[in-house]
Simulated assay, not measured.
Amino acid sequence: MSEVPQAPQPSAPLRTVDVARESGYSVQQVRDLERLGVIPPAVRSANSYRSYTSLHIQALRAYRGLAEATGPVEARRLLTELRTATLADAAAAVNAVHVLLAREREEVLRAQQALHAIGAETGAGPVGQESDAMTITELAGALGVRTSTLRFWEEEGLLTPERVTSLRARRYGPAAVGTARIVLALRGAGYGIAAVREALTALQQDNDPAETARVLQDRLDRIAARTVTLLRAGADLAAVVERAGGRI
């Protein structure tokens, strides 16, 4: 005689200390993240004790992965939105993080290519024809920055555009475009204006790209580490996404 299947039993409520232990956060951090909306409010018992579920643990683990991939501020915003978004919007938001990391990696790779090209062109005359030049709007669009950012880099001596004499319109040749990509990558790696200027001076005067190459490779390695962290958080993020709409 076959056994009658038993209905699954709900998991026992978890205390704050249980959630802290399983998620790797302190008790106070769990309460703070609940207050900030990263995880939904815990159910309160008659004696006002918090009661959590395993899904709260998954949300906290998902937050850890997002925080390492995008930073804590953006991670808090995403987790808060994911809890009330539609399934489609929640999935799209997570995918956007992967796209962002892929774009950062692609930009650093382009900067590395520009670095090699600048090293090869040092001491040579002007490279490229006028048809290869880009306007300030085109270059800003290619880099994903504002035109005001390019003007600021020019003011700080990081980027020197070619100019059309009659209109005073900025145009950037291949060498300037390559320099702009390196500046963008170095700034994205957290280097200040003075440090970027020093790196560019070394490239232009000493023809020694070793330090800049090291910085770019270090940035690639950190992007890879952030990507792996996000992938490891995938199962927990999926649990949050599947319960989009606040059903956690």
Rank of each mutant, 00 (worst) to 15 (best):
A140C: 03
L82A: 12
A224W: 13
P10Q: 11
E104V: 05
L216E: 04
Q9K: 14
Q6K: 15
I223N: 01
Y25A: 08
T137R: 12
E211S: 13
A46F: 10
Q58A: 13
G246F: 09
R146D: 07
D206E: 15
G144E: 01
H98K: 03
V196E: 02
V215M: 05
S148P: 07
G128P: 04
A213T: 15
E162N: 13
A176G: 13
A194V: 08
T16F: 05
A12R: 08
R232C: 13
A90S: 14
T137V: 09
T122S: 05
D221H: 10
A133P: 09
V43F: 00
E3G: 14
T86A: 05
V196A: 00
I39K: 06
A46R: 15
L14A: 07
A102C: 00
P72D: 13
A213E: 15
L79D: 15
E162R: 14
A120Y: 05
R15T: 12
G71E: 08
E211I: 11
G37P: 00
R243T: 14
R105T: 06
V108Y: 03
P40Y: 06
R181D: 04
T80M: 11
T16I: 10
R110A: 13
V177W: 07
T160S: 11
R61P: 04
E34P: 03
T122F: 00
E22G: 07
L79T: 15
A176M: 06
L78A: 08
H56A: 10
D18Y: 03
E34W: 04
P161R: 12
D89W: 11
R15W: 10
R35I: 03
P5G: 12
L14P: 02
R222I: 11
V97R: 01
A175P: 09
I118S: 03
Q129M: 11
P5E: 10
A120I: 07
A185P: 05
T122G: 05
E138D: 07
A92S: 14
A189R: 00
A185V: 01
A244K: 09
V196M: 02
L87P: 03
A133T: 13
T149P: 00
A210S: 12
V97A: 04
A62P: 02
E130P: 12
A88C: 12
S148F: 01
F152C: 05
L230V: 15
R76D: 11
Y191C: 05
A189N: 04
G37E: 00
S11P: 15
G123V: 02
G234D: 15
T16N: 08
W153Q: 02
H98D: 09
